[in-house]
């Protein structure tokens, strides 16, 4: 809690607001100080917190992995190499089991998605007030530390995946083949408009569901952490009620945190696996 005066609603709102940088109402560039200001910035604004955390975590991933890759030997692997190889083999196996065509981009794509999303989700396990309070102490008004609770981030990734689905569908089947896949099934050719609508929705649903699933899960998880954090905030005095609330905040955030370890890994895995499956479908001639 930043100050005594802040209410629960404000606390929640504060935690759900990104640090947005863009053109302010008076025409100058700067950070938004209220959610309304952020909204007014329109499309051409940047959520600096999501962007920076995603960049740092992605950079950490490529830095660690490429350092291992540069020193990778066929001999006895070091601890870090062992760890990286373990992840790599895990990704390689799951890609092999669900991707039947040959495309050298898919496995690295899956690796990047899994590790990056996992790291971004992992930020959810940081104590919920630490980073925002530290940011506030440095004069930064908002700081949302989990990039995957920002739909921009999840949609940013799923749009790239969608573009790849379209690209490989057309590359593998030709524009005509891709259109035929959308138009001439599941019903016979006569029902083309119906087929187009059905398959079109099916196609659009892929990136949308991909992004919203991750965003929704992380957002909901974050929300529960916020609500748990509110319990201790009802502290008024060293009364029995306050103590019970305070104690249950500790227990609940511990319990939810442990459970959340499962969720963040699972969501990263699901995003990766579905991406691989969608790309596999894009590569396959329809039966």
């Amino acid at each position: 809690m930043s100050s005594e005066a802040i209410s629960s609603t404000e606390y929640i709102k504060h935690h759900l607001q990104n640090l947005t940088w863009g053109r302010l109402h008076d025409g100058t560039l700067g950070f938004a100080h209220t959610p309304e200001e952020a909204k007014e910035m329109g499309f051409w604004a940047l959520n600096v917190d999501s962007f920076l955390v995603a960049l740092v975590l992605g950079g950490l991933f490529v830095f660690l992995f490429s350092r291992v890759a540069a020193k990778a030997t066929a001999g006895v692997p070091s601890g870090m190499q062992n760890f990286v190889e373990w992840i790599l083999e895990f990704i390689d196996n799951s890609v092999r089991s669900s991707f039947t065509a040959r495309n050298p981009i898919v496995a690295p794509l899956a690796l990047t998605l899994f590790v990056w999303i996992f790291l971004m989700n992992l930020m959810d396990l940081l104590p919920i007030d630490f980073i925002p309070m530290a940011a506030q102490a440095m004069g930064i008004h908002y700081f949302k530390v989990v990039p995957t609770t920002d739909p921009n981030v999840t949609f940013g990734m799923s749009i790239v995946v969608f573009a790849m689905i379209l690209y490989y569908s057309i590359k593998m089947k030709g524009a005509g083949g891709f259109f035929a896949e959308l138009a001439f099934q599941p019903l016979p050719k006569a029902a083309m408009p119906f087929n187009l609508v059905l398959e079109g929705v099916n196609l659009i649903a892929k990136p949308v569901s991909l992004a919203l699933r991750l965003f929704g899960n992380m957002y909901a998880g974050e929300m529960i952490f916020i609500l748990i954090a509110l319990m201790g905030a009802t502290w008024v005095s060293a009364s029995v009620g306050s103590t019970v609330m305070f104690g249950s905040q500790i227990l609940l955030s511990l319990g939810w945190g442990i459970f959340h370890i499962l969720i963040i890994t699972l969501q990263a895995f699901i995003f990766m696996t579905l991406t691989v499956v969608y790309l596999d479908m894009a590569h396959q001639e329809h039966h």
């Binding site: 959520n47 999501s50 992605g58 990056w116 921009n152 981030v153 949609f155 940013g156 990734m157």
Partner: peptide, 13 residues
């Protein structure tokens, strides 16, 4: 809000 973070994220990705 949906904003340019989307594009930045896509490029980073």
């Amino acid at each position: 809000n949906i904003n340019a973070t989307l594009i930045a994220q896509a490029i980073m990705f």
